[in-house]
Structure formats: C-alpha cells, structure tokens
Amino acid sequence: MVAIHIDPVTGLSLGRIAIGTGALVAPSTTARVLGLDPASNPQLDYLGRMFGAREIALGAVTLVSRGALRRNLTVVGIAVDGADLANGVIELGQRNVTKLASGMLIGAAAGAVGSGLLALVRGRRQSRQGA
C-alpha cells in the first residue's frame, strides 16, 4: 500500500475547490448536505453560488501559489474560515439553524482554521531548518 502525503494547505485548497464546485453547480443540494434548509429560503441558492465561486477562486489560487504568496493566501484562508466559525457560533446562539447544522459548520470551519495554522507552523519550522 502506498501512502500519499498531502500537506494541509493543499488539502484545504482541494477541499475549498470541491465544496465551492458543489455550491456553484448544485447550491440547494450543498446547502442540504451542510444541514441548511434551502426550501425555506430560496434565495440561499444565489448566495450559495456566490460562496462557491469565491471558494473555488481562493482554493485554486492558493493551490498554484508558492513561497510568501502561498503563506499570505493561507493567512487569508484562516481569516475567512475564522469568520465562518464566528458566524456559525452567532447563528447557533440565535437559533437560526439547527444544532446539527451549526455543529457541522462550526466543526468544518474550526478544522480549516486549525489546518491553516498547522500549515503556517510547519512552514516556519521548515524555513528555520532550511536557513
């Protein structure tokens, strides 16, 4: 069996592209998978496609970048995911989404923030070792 190693930034970038593609191509389905109810708010499709396009763009540009630009885009991704995490906590408190949906969305955002931070720490260690 061959083990494939994907660094956290590449994994996040591919995840962004996958989720973004789903949201762009099938926004209602993606919303339902994430525990949201597009039937109660048909305008969610519009926002889902906007979200999807941005996720694809951020994922793709980060995926192909290198060096300082990749690091800076990772920081941007952490900020975006941090905002998603905060929004999930706010929505949970306001009870605008179910606890299950909030948990899924908060968990995904927290995982993405953690992966981004891990990538930054690893990148700094590798820079120090290579210097």
Rank of each mutant, 00 (worst) to 15 (best):
M1F: 06
M1W: 10
V2K: 12
V2E: 01
A3H: 12
I4W: 10
I4E: 02
H5W: 08
I6H: 03
D7R: 11
P8T: 14
V9T: 13
V9S: 02
T10K: 10
L14W: 13
A18D: 00
G20D: 09
G20Y: 05
T21F: 11
A23M: 10
A23E: 13
L24V: 09
V25I: 13
V25K: 07
T29S: 01
T29A: 01
T30H: 03
T30E: 05
T30S: 10
R32K: 14
L34F: 14
L34W: 13
G35F: 08
D37M: 07
A39M: 08
L44W: 13
Y46F: 14
G52C: 01
A53M: 12
E55P: 00
A57Y: 09
L58E: 03
T62F: 01
T62G: 00
L63G: 01
V64K: 02
S65G: 01
S65L: 03
G67I: 03
A68I: 06
A68K: 09
R70N: 02
R70C: 01
R70W: 07
R71D: 13
T74A: 04
V75G: 00
V76H: 04
V76D: 00
V76M: 05
G77Q: 10
G77N: 10
I78H: 09
A79Y: 12
V80H: 04
D81E: 14
D81T: 09
D81K: 08
G82F: 05
G82S: 12
G82P: 06
G82Y: 06
L85Q: 05
L85H: 10
A86I: 14
A86D: 07
N87L: 15
G88L: 03
G88E: 05
V89F: 12
L92Y: 15
L92G: 12
Q94H: 13
R95C: 09
A101Y: 15
S102H: 13
S102Q: 13
G103Y: 09
G103L: 05
G103W: 11
L105N: 12
A108C: 04
A108H: 08
A108G: 08
A110Y: 01
A110Q: 04
A112G: 04
V113F: 08
G114Y: 11
G114F: 11
G114H: 08
S115Y: 11
G116Y: 03
L117V: 15
A119S: 12
L120V: 12
L120D: 06
L120Y: 10
V121A: 10
R122M: 10
G123Q: 07
G123F: 05
R125M: 06
S127E: 15
S127C: 01
G130T: 15
